[in-house]
Computed example of a mutant assay.
Amino acid sequence: MLKMSIQARLPSKTITPRSLQVVNVDTTVQDKAIAFPTDARLYHKARAALVRQAKKCRLQLRQSDERLSKRDLMMNGRYAHAKQMKRARSMQKRLRTYLGCVIRDIERKLQSQP
Results as ranks from 00 to 15, higher is better:
70 K>Q: 04
46 A>Y: 14
101 C>T: 11
81 H>W: 07
105 D>R: 00
6 I>P: 08
79 Y>L: 10
73 L>T: 11
114 P>N: 10
87 R>N: 13
32 K>R: 01
85 M>C: 02
81 H>N: 08
102 V>M: 12
92 Q>C: 02
30 Q>Y: 03
44 H>A: 15
99 L>D: 00
11 P>T: 03
99 L>W: 01
113 Q>H: 02
64 S>I: 03
10 L>S: 10
16 T>M: 07
101 C>Q: 03
101 C>M: 09
82 A>R: 12
95 L>H: 05
108 R>Y: 11
72 D>W: 03
26 D>F: 05
79 Y>N: 10
100 G>R: 02
86 K>R: 14
44 H>I: 10
79 Y>W: 10
103 I>Y: 02
33 A>I: 05
77 G>N: 15
84 Q>L: 15
66 E>G: 00
34 I>P: 00
37 P>M: 01
55 K>C: 06
111 Q>I: 11
57 C>R: 14
12 S>R: 12
9 R>K: 09
107 E>N: 08
89 R>L: 12
40 A>E: 09
48 A>V: 11
24 N>M: 07
35 A>K: 09
91 M>W: 07
81 H>V: 07
72 D>P: 01
112 S>F: 12
35 A>T: 12
110 L>S: 06
73 L>S: 14
86 K>W: 12
82 A>W: 06
106 I>E: 05
30 Q>V: 06
108 R>C: 04
15 I>L: 15
7 Q>K: 10
61 L>F: 03
64 S>V: 03
14 T>S: 14
40 A>L: 03
21 Q>K: 13
44 H>G: 07
11 P>I: 06
71 R>Q: 08
52 R>K: 15
49 A>K: 15
36 F>R: 04
68 L>Q: 09
112 S>R: 10
8 A>I: 07
45 K>L: 05
87 R>W: 10
14 T>N: 04
65 D>L: 11
65 D>H: 14
37 P>T: 04
80 A>R: 08
28 T>K: 06
23 V>H: 08
31 D>R: 00
